Simulated assay, not measured.
Amino acid sequence: MARKPTLRDVSRAAGLSVYTVSRALSNGDGVSAASRELVLKVARELGYVPNRAAQELRKNTRSSVAVVTASTSNYYYIDLMKGIQRTLRLSDRTAIVADIAAEGVYTPELEDATIQDLIQSRTAGVIATLTLAPHNMKLLEDWDIPVVFVDSIPHESATRVPSITTDNFSASMKVGAHLGEHGYRDWLFLAYPARWSTRAERERGIRAAALKYGAGIEVIESENDVESAYATLTAYLDTPGRALPRAVIAGNNPMLHGALRVLHARGVRIPDDVAVVAFDEFAWAALLDPPLTVLNEDSETIGVIAAQTLTRIIDDQIKAELRGDPPTPAYRPEDRRELSSDLIIRRSCGC
């Protein structure tokens, strides 16, 4: 493997001191515009990439934020990241993504390793989409790394940590009310594991709506990926004597994808035979046949609010350090927010 160019290589090629090259690459003061342009040109030609982690250790500029996700196959995260990145750019910060359930299966070992890596790289802060283990929260706290949760809630021991979530109980009640108004009385909720904290309130809302409208409700659990959802629903429907439910509620995008594959493979007509409603809007939901009725959480707005909250906390830490005070994250009660959602009615529900 070819040797990677170093800062000293750029210095030699540019005919400037290592100090000047370092200042130019970090956009520091005391470097002329001509020298800065020369250094950037030489660095591009050599393929030199600054070691940002090492710079963070020396300068503590707090410029990189980690977004810890859990199964990026969920389209929810696409709009979430759009909101996060757009907001972080306003403060010249960047976001990196660490997926601790890439195949839809969570393991505590991967969570532990990920948190260790983030601490070693001195990430400025963390936006987490999955409830982190208490010992990992303690590690982040010990290193003064602030955390904001989205689409999940902190462990009960983390009483002050911010969270930006959807009111999932009310969201599920909206879904159930719509199915009830259609007169459907046999519902199936295809759910992801309870390790994802949104599951509990979504299921509670669906069950409450079923009770209110006199519907029967079955809940089946799948791992949080498309193939598992397909296999889980297939096994359920293959049970001898099992009839098709009148309505299927998919707990998220991977559950929806798996459910649609099963129904299409069996020639089930949507919504004539089975109505389908899903959580989380996605870009082409309206383009499917039939167009899908979905619960829209507006994850882009959630991402914006989470990034704004984290940015404020990090900026306050920098100010504290300049005053000579400890950079302990300063959380506020209003940093815990629960947002409303909208049911987007299309045709898959029978409308």
Rank of each mutant, 00 (worst) to 15 (best):
L16I: 12
D142A: 12
A235Y: 08
V277G: 08
A158W: 01
R199W: 03
G214E: 14
A215E: 12
S63A: 12
A70N: 04
P146I: 04
S222H: 01
S340F: 01
E321V: 11
L7R: 02
E109N: 11
Y19N: 14
E56T: 15
D112N: 15
A171N: 03
A24V: 07
R122C: 02
N51G: 04
Y19C: 08
R202N: 07
D315R: 02
Y48F: 14
E321L: 13
G267N: 07
A250N: 01
R93N: 01
L322G: 11
A194T: 11
L233R: 08
I96W: 04
A215M: 04
R261G: 07
H257G: 06
R207F: 01
I249W: 05
S121W: 02
P154E: 11
E109Y: 06
L25F: 06
G241D: 10
R323H: 05
D117E: 12
W143L: 02
D9G: 02
W187A: 09
G241Q: 09
R323C: 05
R62W: 00
A158T: 05
S91D: 10
Y213K: 00
A229N: 08
E297I: 08
N74H: 01
V39P: 06
T131Q: 09
A133T: 09
T87M: 13
T69I: 09
S26Q: 10
E221I: 13
P240K: 04
R199M: 07
R23K: 04
V277R: 06
V97K: 03
R93Q: 05
A259M: 13
T234S: 09
H178Y: 03
V219H: 00
E103C: 13
I145T: 10
R23E: 05
K138T: 15
I270L: 08
K138A: 15
R195L: 15
K212N: 12
A283F: 07
